[in-house]
């Protein structure tokens, strides 16, 4: 099974300051990168009634490496409450998980934890 390798599009998201930039702008870029590294993003899975419960459990186990009990807990949350908040991550990691979940056709998004 694919153990969540980094895909090419993530590398494009890393911003690099160039020497031509003004010091203030460089500082802004650094601040932005720092905030993107902080675990301020929630990965959320939303209920699609068409998905099989066993399939959703399997995907959670595969993508997050969770034990069956934890995966089932979140699957039931999705099923009964319409959504489940999965990990709280940095922006880059949250994007990675959303991509993995969407690869399995699950309805997943990331939202800022405010």
């Amino acid at each position: 099974m694919d153990k969540c390798p980094r895909v090419s599009y993530f590398s494009a998201m890393v911003e690099t300051a160039t020497p031509e930039l003004q010091p203030g702008i460089i500082q802004e870029e650094k601040d932005k990168s720092k905030s993107e590294l902080e675990p301020g993003y929630l990965v959320i899975c939303w209920n699609d009634p068409v998905n099989l419960m066993g399939y959703v459990t399997h995907v959670f186990q595969t993508v997050f490496g969770w034990a069956r009990q934890k995966a089932e807990f979140h699957m039931l949350q999705v099923h009964e409450q319409g959504k489940s908040v999965l990990p709280r991550e940095s922006m880059e990691k949250a994007e990675h998980y959303v991509h993995q979940l969407q690869k399995y056709s699950l309805h997943a998004t990331m939202e800022r934890d405010e």
Binding site: V7, S8, Y9, F10, A12, M13, K32, S35, E36, Y41, M91, E95, V98, H99, Q102, K103, H107, A108, T109, M110, E111, R112, E114
Partner: peptide
């Protein structure tokens, strides 16, 4: 599939288009 339901992510448009491309 949207990356986010609430449009409050940094560079959301480009992140969305990168996700669409990857998928």
């Amino acid at each position: 599939q949207p990356l986010s339901k609430v449009a409050r992510l940094p560079d959301q448009e480009s992140s969305q288009s990168l996700l669409d491309e990857a998928l």
